[in-house]
Amino acid sequence: MAVSAALSTGERLSVPGLRNTEVQRVRRLQRRLARAKPGSNRRARVRTAIGRIKARETDRRKDWVEQTSTALARRYDLIRVEDLKIKNMVRSARGTLTVPGTNVRAKAGLNPSIHAAGWGQLVTRLEQKAPGRVEKINPAYTSQICHACGHRAPENRESQAVFRCRACGHVDHADVNAAKNIRDIAVGRTVTARGALQPLGGAVNREPQPVLSSG
């Protein structure tokens, strides 16, 4: 998931994850861990090294959530978000012996990226920092509907990132298009700007409300 959250303003927000060098180091350490003897000191050292890098990733995600939620709470009167059932989204796809799961390998790769995106944490902190100003909207079909002409078709969602309307040819980032649809499904398109909470340096005027769509 390259985009953690997309706004109806067109902004795309992403959690800063591990750098390429850190990802490569984790992979090397995981290979060492697989070869290490269970219960050995070497295995313990490798697990500790992996844990340090993973903790770094978690800290970066938490910092991003705090900064992003604070900025959005200060900028906007009303924030509408997709009402995603994250627990269901990350549920195991393995199934049972009698009813085997489907796309197990793909699902196993997707689940960590859903957690890493920090979507659930972001919404929780928004609700805490902007009490009464966060609305959860049912996202059904919003990824299939063209914001420009209203045509709905599964084929409109060309890929994870690209939305291309089969009727009018409108092209947009898929998550931004969905966020615009959620904005329009909800009550009204704009909210009158008013003074924000007083941050350091004086008041900041708030802009019309955004809508967030997950990546």
Rank of each mutant, 00 (worst) to 15 (best):
K54C: 08
N138P: 02
K180R: 15
G109I: 02
R32E: 15
N205E: 15
A148D: 12
C168R: 03
V191R: 03
H173Y: 07
L197Y: 10
R61C: 11
P112C: 11
S14R: 15
T68D: 09
A44S: 11
Q24W: 03
R61T: 13
A6G: 08
G169A: 09
V81I: 14
D59M: 12
G150N: 09
T68H: 03
S14M: 02
A178E: 08
A93C: 06
A5W: 01
I114W: 10
A36T: 03
A153N: 12
R19L: 14
W119Y: 14
R105W: 08
K87E: 15
Q24L: 14
N205G: 06
A130Y: 10
Y76G: 02
S113I: 00
L126V: 06
T48S: 13
R75A: 15
A167V: 01
D175R: 00
R133Y: 07
R47G: 03
G132L: 10
D63L: 11
M89Q: 09
P100Q: 09
K62Y: 12
D59E: 13
E135F: 00
I145R: 13
L212C: 05
H170G: 04
L212N: 07
T21N: 10
S69D: 12
R47W: 01
E57N: 04
C165E: 01
L78G: 00
V187K: 03
R52W: 04
P208E: 13
N205C: 02
R194A: 12
V65A: 07
R61S: 10
A196Y: 02
R74C: 09
S213V: 00
R61Y: 03
L72W: 01
Q144P: 00
L126K: 08
V15C: 10
Q198E: 14
M1I: 06
S14P: 02
A55P: 00
K129W: 04
D63S: 13
T58I: 12
N138Y: 06
L200R: 09
N205Q: 14
L212R: 02
S214I: 05
T48W: 10
S159Y: 07
S8C: 04
R56Q: 15
